[in-house]
Amino acid sequence: MIETSSRLVAAKALSLLDLTDLTDNCDAAAIERLCQQAQTPFGHAAAICIWPRFVRQARGLLGQNSAIRIATVVNFPSGELPVEEVVAETKTAIDDGADEIDLVIPYRKLIAGDERAVREMVSAVRAACTPPVLLKVILETGELKDRDLIRSASHLAISTGADFIKTSTGKVKVNATLEAADIMLNAIRESGRNVGFKPAGGVRTVADAALYLNLAATIHGPDWAIPSTFRFGASGLLGDILATLEGRPAGSPNAAY
């Protein structure tokens, strides 16, 4: 029963996966591998998440009508670029073929008490993300730290047009945590809006994924987590998903990552 349950979680996690390569040494060959890895014998990842400079290449590799979406990052990872520069970055990425934009809020300004800076950034990028482009807003919860600040950031992002709220860049000391997930998932419920959630950074195993899926089910119901409402931002998770689905030990060397 446990094995069957693990395989069910693995299959679900695969369908919710934003397979990510935001490493500093990412190159064209790595993007080609990522596009191949996103398509498995058990189904495909929801999306790949890559640097903006590789979006055009990925679109060419996946094709115009691919079921695998292309997500890219803006104002990343610092959250400190000027609004007009981030908007220009967003528009270029969309022109290159991006389906989803993962935007880092100016979280340091928020920590200093400047909520207006967050609203201005999210609103401006929202305006550039015309449907069907999705806007996923990264709060960088590991740097916000305070529960009330994470909740406030969640509501700011939701009220200014986020389609998803996302925990982290994966580039700081503390990334996705269950505590932050609980705050953010409850903020979504409180808002009454159809907004998704994306834990990112540190979700490496099917067992990790199960914890987040169980939390989402507790707050939003057992059928809530689907690709339009839930994503895992991860690079290493695919390897454990495939090991589980193939019946291999977790972390075995044949895993994709």
Rank of each mutant, 00 (worst) to 15 (best):
P222L: 09
D146L: 10
A29S: 15
N65R: 10
T4R: 14
D27S: 15
I226M: 06
C26P: 11
G63N: 08
P77Y: 12
A234E: 07
G247S: 13
L237E: 02
S152R: 15
A187F: 12
A29C: 10
I138K: 12
E80S: 14
A243P: 04
S15Q: 08
A200Y: 00
G43T: 03
L144Y: 10
R147D: 15
A47D: 00
A157E: 02
N254L: 14
P249Y: 00
D95K: 02
Q57H: 12
D114A: 09
D18P: 04
L135S: 09
R116G: 14
T167C: 14
A162H: 02
E143K: 08
A255T: 04
R108G: 04
L14D: 01
T20V: 08
E115N: 13
E120M: 05
A10E: 01
S159A: 15
V137R: 01
F232P: 05
L14V: 06
A200Q: 03
L238C: 07
K173P: 09
T40W: 07
T92V: 05
E85Q: 13
N186R: 15
S6N: 14
A225Q: 08
S66Y: 04
T90A: 01
R151P: 00
L62V: 06
E32D: 08
V55F: 07
S154Y: 07
R151G: 14
Q36Y: 05
R189Q: 11
P41T: 02
I183N: 03
I226A: 13
T130D: 06
R53P: 00
G63Q: 05
E80N: 08
V87W: 12
S228M: 15
F42A: 07
D148N: 03
I2G: 15
S66W: 10
I101P: 02
Q36G: 04
D27K: 09
